[in-house]
Design a protein around this nucleic acid. Structure first.
Lengths: 346, 346
DNA sequence: TGTTAGCACTCTACCATGATGAGTGCTAAC
DNA sequence: GTTAGCACTCATCATGGTAGAGTGCTAACA
C-alpha cells in the first residue's frame, strides 16, 4: 500500500481525479497539458499516465478514450492529495442556519438533518438514528390499549422517543401502571440500556422480589419493553438526486441503486461499520462486496452525546464525488447534531 | 359521457384492453381475430377498431402499430366492462394470513400494510394514516425535556400514537404535569379532536377558569399540543417495483416517477381526494393534471373505524394494470384495516 | 536522459442506408 | 355486412462508412 509517487505523478494524478470529478468524462493527455500549466507536452503526460495505469491508479475504458481514476486512484487521492479546508466561520453559521430544530422531536430532527445535508451536498443523505441500546434511560410511561396490550413510551436522555406495544397481564390497573412507571423512573433514570437490563436481571433473581408482586411485574414489563428493537432507524433523503448522476443514467443502474436505497440493508451494514470510527470516513464502493452499491461512495461521520446515543450520518453518491466539499459538510453536520443532542439533555 | 357501444365494439374493446394489460404491447387486428373466437376476420375487427379510435377509446402510436387503449378507453373498461369478482373465502384467509399485526403500533401497522399490499399486487403500495384531526381523543401524557420543552404523547382511540414537542412554562413541575394530564384525560377522552378543540376554546373563555391557574395551563398546553400536524403520514412501499414496469423503462420516466413518489405531494393530494368516497376508487393519471405521475393509475380505498380516524390506502402503478386482481386486494385490505382499528378500540 | 513532434492506429459515436416485418386502410368481390 | 387482397406506412435492426478523440511508438532534439 505504501506506494510512493514522485511529485509529477502526484500532480498529474491529482488533476486527473479533479477533472474527472468535474466532468465525469475520461481525461485525455492533451486536456491536461493545456488546461493546467505544467509546461509539459501531451506526450510527456502520456508517459506518466501510462506509468500510473501500470501501477493501478488509472484505467482506460477503451483504447482511444482518456483515463479515469480507479478505486485505488481515488483512495490515493483522498488519503494523500486531498486538502480538506475547514469551513470558514461564515460558512458554518450559514450552514447552521439551514437547520431549524426548534420544537422538533428526535425522529424529525434525524429526518430534517438528512434533508438539509442532502440539499447542501446535492447527494443522497443518510442518517442512522442512535441505536436503542446505545441510549440512556430517562423516562418510561405505559398507556393501556385493549386486550391487556400496553403501549410503552420510552424516552432517552437525548429526547429520543420510542413506542412499542407489548402484551401484559390484563388485570393491571391504571394505578398499578402508574406505580410501576414511577418505580422504574426512580430506579433506572440515568442508566444506560445495558446497565438497565443488567439491573433488571439481577433484581429479578433477588430473594426479596418474590414478595413484591408489583415490583416483579414492573421488572418484567420493562424487560419486555426494553427488548432490542429489530428495526434500525435509517432515513434516506434525496433519493432522486442519485438518478441525476451520469454514472447511474442507464435503467439497469437506476433500478439497482434505487433498490439498494430502498432496502437499506447494505446501507445499515456500512453505517454500522463506520459507527466505531472517529471523524469522517470515506467508503469507496468496491466491486467485490456490496455489488448493489457498486460505483458508490459513502462519506460518513458519527455523532454522539456525552451520554452515549451514537448515530451515524453521511451522504452517498458516485465515487466521483467532490470530496473537498462533501467532507466538511458531513463533518460539520455530525458535530452540529452532537451538540444538539447535548443541549437536549439539559 | 353516456356513450353507447354495441356488443361487438364492447367485446373488442374489452379484449384489446385485456391483451394490452397482459402484454404492454399495442394490439393488432390479426391477434384479436386469431386468439379470441370472435369468428371475425382481421379486416372486420379493423373496422370496429377504426370506429373505436374515432370515438376516442383507442389510439395508435403510429401507422403500423396496433392500437392501445386511451385513458378514456380504460375508463370505459373499468366502469362498464370490468367484472371484479370478490375474493373467495379461501383467498381471503390466505390474504389475511399475510398480515401479522400482533403487538404492532399504528405506524408500524400502516407501514406493514403497505408492504404486504405491495407484495401481493406487485405494485407500489401507498398508505395514508388517519389524519390527526379525524381521530378521537383517548389519552395524553407529558414528558419534560430540557429548557421548558415538553414532549406531548397523544394516543387516539384507535391506538395511533403521535409525539410532538412544545414549549411551555419551565416552572411547571412534574406534579403539575401529572395533574394536567389527569384533568385532560378525564375531560376529553372520547371526544373527537374538533370537539376537543371546541371545548378547550369554550372553557378558556369561561369565567371560573380565571381562578384556576393549573386548569388554564392544562387547556393552553393541550391547545398547543393538538395543533394540526402539518405533515401527513404517507407510507410508500415497493418503490422499485415501479421501475420494473415497461412504461417506466426510460431514464427520464424513471426519474420522474421516483421523484413523484419521493416528494409525496401529488400522492397526498390524490389520496386526500379519494378520502371522501366509499369503496374502491380508480384514478387514471390524466395527461393534463399531475404530469409527474403521467401514465399512472391509483387504485385506492379508505378505511376507518366507527369512531372516525379515516385513512386511505391503495396501490399506484401504470394505467395498464390488472384491475380485476388489484381492486379486490385493495378493497379487502381496506376492510381488514378498518376491522383492525375497530378491534383496537376494545 | 528526459522531452517533444509526428504519425499510424484504435475505438466510439454518429449518421445514412436498406431490409424486414407488423399492421393498417382501402377497394372490390362475396 | 363481411372478407380477401394489396399497396402503403412506419419502427426496428443490422450494416457500413465517417469523423473525432486519444493513444502508443518512434525518432529527433536539448
Amino acid at each position: 500500500m505504501a506506494e510512493e509517487l514522485n511529485d509529477r505523478s502526484q500532480n498529474i494524478l491529482e488533476v486527473i481525479v479533479e477533472d474527472y470529478i468535474a466532468s465525469a468524462e475520461p481525461v485525455g493527455s492533451r486536456a491536461i497539458s493545456r488546461r493546467h500549466s505544467f509546461n509539459l507536452s501531451p506526450a510527456s503526460v502520456r508517459n506518466v499516465m501510462s506509468d500510473l495505469e501500470e501501477m493501478g491508479f488509472l484505467c482506460s475504458p477503451h483504447t482511444s478514450a482518456g483515463r479515469i481514476p480507479t478505486d485505488k486512484g481515488f483512495h490515493y487521492y483522498i488519503d494523500t492529495l486531498l486538502q480538506v479546508r475547514d469551513l470558514s466561520k461564515e460558512e458554518e453559521s450559514r450552514l447552521q442556519k439551514s437547520y431549524r430544530f426548534k420544537d422538533m422531536k428526535m425522529e424529525d430532527i434525524m429526518q430534517e438533518v438528512g434533508r438539509v445535508m442532502s440539499g447542501l451536498s446535492n447527494y443522497t443523505g443518510l442518517v442512522m438514528a442512535p441505536k436503542f441500546a446505545s441510549t440512556v434511560f430517562r423516562q418510561i410511561e405505559f398507556v393501556r390499549l385493549s386486550h391487556g396490550r400496553l403501549l410503552v413510551i420510552y424516552v432517552s436522555e437525548t429526547g429520543l422517543v420510542q413506542n412499542k406495544v407489548i402484551t401484559a397481564d390484563p388485570s393491571l390497573t391504571a394505578r398499578d401502571l402508574e406505580q410501576i412507571s414511577q418505580y422504574l423512573n426512580r430506579e433506572m433514570t440515568g442508566l444506560s440500556i445495558p446497565k438497565v437490563r443488567e439491573k433488571i436481571a439481577r433484581e429479578l433473581k433477588a430473594e426479596r422480589i418474590r414478595y413484591d408482586a408489583l415490583q416483579q411485574q414492573a421488572l418484567e414489563l420493562s424487560s419486555a419493553a426494553l427488548q432490542e428493537k429489530t428495526e434500525d432507524l435509517v432515513f434516506v433523503s434525496g433519493t432522486s438526486l442519485m438518478l441525476e448522476q451520469p454514472e447511474f443514467s442507464t435503467p439497469e443502474r437506476m433500478k439497482r441503486i434505487i433498490h439498494a436505497l430502498e432496502s437499506k440493508k447494505t446501507l445499515i451494514e456500512l453505517l454500522d461499520r463506520s459507527q466505531a470510527a472517529q471523524g469522517v470516513q470515506v467508503f469507496i464502493g468496491s466491486r467485490s462486496e456490496h455489488t448493489e452499491i457498486e460505483g458508490c461512495s459513502l462519506v460518513t461521520a458519527s455523532f454522539s452525546s456525552k451520554k452515549g446515543a451514537i448515530g451515524t450520518l453521511g451522504v452517498i453518491g458516485p465515487v466521483r464525488m467532490p470530496y473537498s466539499q462533501v467532507i466538511p459538510i458531513v463533518d460539520f453536520t455530525a458535530q452540529l447534531v452532537s451538540r444538539i443532542l447535548e443541549r437536549e439533555v439539559e
